Amino acid sequence: MAIEHKDIAAIREDYAKGSLSENDTLGNPIEQFERWFQQALDGEVVEPNAMVLSTINREGFPSSRVVLLKDLKSEGFSFFTNYTSQKGQDIEQHGKVSLLFFWPELQRQVRIEGIVEKLPAEDSDEYYASRPRGSQIGAWASPQSQVIADRSVLEERVATYEDKFAGQPLVPRPTFWGGYLVKPVRMEFWQGRSSRLHDRIVYTKAENNSWTKKRLAP
């Protein structure tokens, strides 16, 4: 039975769990994000480090997917992936991306626009070494974003690399897999409010690396 459009239009929730004013926020947006992220952890948000990464593909279309934040530095936000994947190829051509965190339990979202660059190899080595062995093998086995005939292709490749690295205490990091750092130039903190009159505080980075903070209409 098809869903009627009116049923979709009737879905709504009133937001009344919090508020956000200019005085509530810190001068540095990454420090403000740390504060909110800790509150998301304390509030038992499901996968608070899940973020939507949007890139620009070769046809000029935005392309989005959910990835996981794996480190937060003073410079920005880190995630890891296959460099030859679609997102890796997009990043190679267009070094500007956006991130989106949505924490419905807190009725909050954070929007980030920034410049992306590869992390140093030692950072990628360190994180890769911390992954479960199955995930390490999976990084070798998956020709990420490429068309494959069926799942048996993956299973066969996993078996191949399990045999290759059998008996080795450490699985080496593939050269085609590693991390990226998103350095923000714009960050917006959104707090849901009643009657759709949401609070929006946006930070913009200046040429001298200072941040300006303003309120946006919902």
Rank of each mutant, 00 (worst) to 15 (best):
P143L: 12
P169M: 06
I56V: 15
V110G: 10
W177I: 05
G76A: 10
E126G: 02
F165S: 04
I115G: 07
T160K: 12
V97N: 09
L99H: 09
R65D: 00
F61C: 06
E59A: 12
P104I: 15
S78K: 14
D90M: 03
T81D: 07
E105S: 15
T84W: 08
R151D: 05
I148D: 10
G178M: 00
K70A: 08
Y83P: 00
K118E: 13
S145G: 08
R58D: 13
A121Q: 12
F80E: 03
Q86V: 01
D163I: 10
P132C: 04
R111P: 01
E59Y: 10
R108D: 09
F102W: 10
S85K: 02
A149V: 14
E122K: 11
G76T: 13
P104Y: 11
I137R: 06
A141T: 05
D123N: 15
E162H: 05
E162R: 13
A166I: 03
G76N: 11
T175N: 06
S54A: 15
Y161K: 08
L106N: 12
F80C: 00
Q107G: 14
K96F: 14
E122A: 14
Q93N: 11
A141W: 04
A121L: 11
S142Q: 06
G88L: 01
S63R: 13
